[in-house]
């Protein structure tokens, strides 16, 4: 699990260093790890990996307890909650793509709520919703496909015993 979290931190940092394609929208690639963890080892692992990632990455980026940190945490918690809830759905259930899209939408919702509650008490903020939402749909879909490939790869490498993380 530490291995997974380290992976996610690395991706998070890399993404912070990349120039944004559009202001306010970034691919959220670290969520690929969260989704893969969810599919392979369940929700508790996904929660642990995400929280560790946000904490460690913010320490390394120097944004701990700054607005960026709270936005990240709000988005992350919302995404985790949504994924946990959608796991309870009946039937064959969701695969990586479904989880990823749901997480992406929950992430921007959580982030907007945190932004509204803590920083910008102005309803104009929600005018950003369509732009962020379309961004979330796109990035969520592609991250989900990436997570699907990752899950398939890891399943093949570690068929039954304890997975590549050795947890």
């Amino acid at each position: 699990m530490a291995w997974l979290a380290a992976f996610a931190v690395a991706i998070h940092l890399l993404e912070a260093a990349l120039p944004p394609i559009l202001p306010g929208i970034k691919p959220g690639l670290a969520n690929v790890i969260t989704v893969a963890a969810l599919c392979l080892w369940g929700w508790p692992t996904a929660v642990a990996v995400t929280l560790l990632r946000i904490l460690v990455a913010s320490i390394l980026l120097g944004t701990l307890l700054s607005p960026a940190f709270w936005l990240s945490l709000g988005g992350g918690l919302a995404a985790l909650a949504a994924m946990g809830l959608s796991q309870a759905l009946p039937g064959r259930g969701l695969g990586p793509v479904g989880y990823s899209v749901i997480a992406a939408v929950a992430h921007i919702s959580g982030q907007l709520l945190v932004a509204y509650g803590l920083f910008v008490h102005h309803p104009g903020l929600f005018a950003l919703l369509p732009i962020l939402g379309v961004g979330a749909a796109i990035t969520g879909t592609f991250n989900g496909l990436a997570a699907f490939l990752l899950v398939r790869e890891w399943r093949r490498e570690a068929p039954s015993e304890h997975g590549p993380a050795g947890n």
Partner: peptide, 16 residues
């Protein structure tokens, strides 16, 4: 790569 539920989610989110 997708389950039926995945496809439902995709349609709902993209449409919305």
């Amino acid at each position: 790569a997708t389950t039926p539920a995945d496809r439902l989610v995709l349609i709902a989110v993209w449409g919305g």
